[in-house]
Design a protein around this nucleic acid. Sequence first.
DNA 1: AATCCTTTGAAGTCG
DNA 2: CGACTTCAAAGGATT
Length: 575
Amino acid sequence: MPQLNGGGGDDLGANDEMISFKDEGEQEEKISENVSAERDLDDVKSSLVNESENNSSSSDSEQAERRPQPRPDSESYEKTRDYFSEALRRQQDGFFKSPHYPGYPFLMIPDLTNPYLSNGSLSPSARTYLQMKWPLLDVPGTAGLKDSRSPTPGHLSNKVPVVQHAHHVHPLTPLITYSNERFSPGTPPSHLSPEILDPKTGIPRTPHPSELSPYYPLSPGAVGQIPHPLGWLVPQQGQHMYSIPPGGFRHPYPALAMNASMSSLVSSRFSPHMVPHHPHGLHQTGIPHPAIVSPAIKQEPNNDGGGGSIVHSKSPGPAKKEEDKRPHIKKPLNAFMLYMKEMRAKVVAECTLKESAAINQILGRRWHSLSREEQAKYYELARKERQLHSQLYPGWSARDNYGKRKKRKRDNKTDSTPEDFSSRNKKQCVQYLPSEKMCDSPASSHGSMLDSPATPSAALASPAAPAATHSEQAQPLSLTTKPEGRSHHHFPLPGKPSGSSSSSSTSSASSQPSISLSIGSSGSQSAPILSRPIPFTSLHPSMLSPPTSFHQAALHSHHALFQSQPLSLVTKSTD
DNA sequence: AATCCTTTGAAGTCG
DNA sequence: CGACTTCAAAGGATT
């Protein structure tokens, strides 16, 4: 893979906050839409504002963020506590009990402590270590490094109290997308050491780092110890993207293998040599993937899990019944999801908002404000996840999960008649967030898109822009292109490995609903509109604080942009 | 207890 | 091929 660059970090220089070029309309859209709502909210906010008096956020948003609020709001505090407690719990449960990482002695480092410096950066030694450890990690490596320094995500963690669990949970952990929670273990690996039990299931899990590629990092325990390249990405929630399979891994380091071949593999779903087919449906490697969730979608419970329950849907197997039992293999997370995971804690801490819907709105905006490089990282990461996922579950298809959730989702148009629709909820008008004023501050507020044009260069320039570079990929970076409202700009790192060119990328973009400028049209779905207003109480004062100089500048640009692009209301209207 | 809500992106389905 | 639908995470709010 392209190394992102090795730069140590600087590439990132661009933080989202700094460079945002992205999309245009995010703010605007919301703003325009929100305006009215905002006012109301403002009132609320103002009142709320009092809550936090302290935040004088200093200068940069970063700093502001960084500064952990001396005293976190009670809420955040609680949250933090939760995280910690959770981490603790896990530890106690044995997550970390014994590292059996045969191959990875370092994993055992008790303190993992700390590869990450207090500020979140990776210690040099750690870095080295990492590299040695995970040679495979490509991008990430860099990313990891960089992140450590980069103002962005990585530190965020530090900033937010919530985030830091240094020893409890490694930040990387989160990378593992498939949360263990839902993961239902198949059969407990007899060969594994019993010591580790899944907190929830009580089933023994193995911490073996094994297969998980960087993206699917190691077991929780392991994770904790090893800095993931994407460490910065990691949310601290303690979730793992792909948790470790309860079952053991037979292959010690499949992951590595994967990685090695990854580039090539990518194209080819899997190399035969890699995995022996498992009759049971276990992952070929025999490893239950974290993505695997117990049959009951949300309930994961089966402890017993039935051994072997893990079956690929496609597996010719036995009967459909099995389907029921079949573990639910989750979809790999996409770039945005990864981003959300990483950033959610931060946003929560900043805003104190608790509602995910609101937070997600913010995150969505921030996402748009990310620089291409940054987004590229996530796309890349997501791409890898998909690859890994496909390798792990060759037969799996997204279709397998269809219908498992009962969601009716927005029907808007589809079936629901207008009436329904209205009934449902979308009361329009109220948004969760007034505007970026609050939380999403940094990036979004400003600049998002501002520079998009400029950025390109940046991308090129910055090492980080791996994608770009290597990209042949086509990174469509052309943000500029981003037409209409949403930036689709996906420069998608094409999921398709094979075609690195990613032609697909483009296509994908297309898939997105194009934005319709249409104004409000959308009632139906304009995303921004939420049915339930969220009180801003949660806003953190800091968010409200005025932009720093830097920000101002950004604003400036934003301004310009604004003019040029007059509100594009970008609603994702589906229609 | 289950579902909604919200976000983006990927992948599936359907015409 | 395009439009549309599902699901992925998350967690408070709602039913």
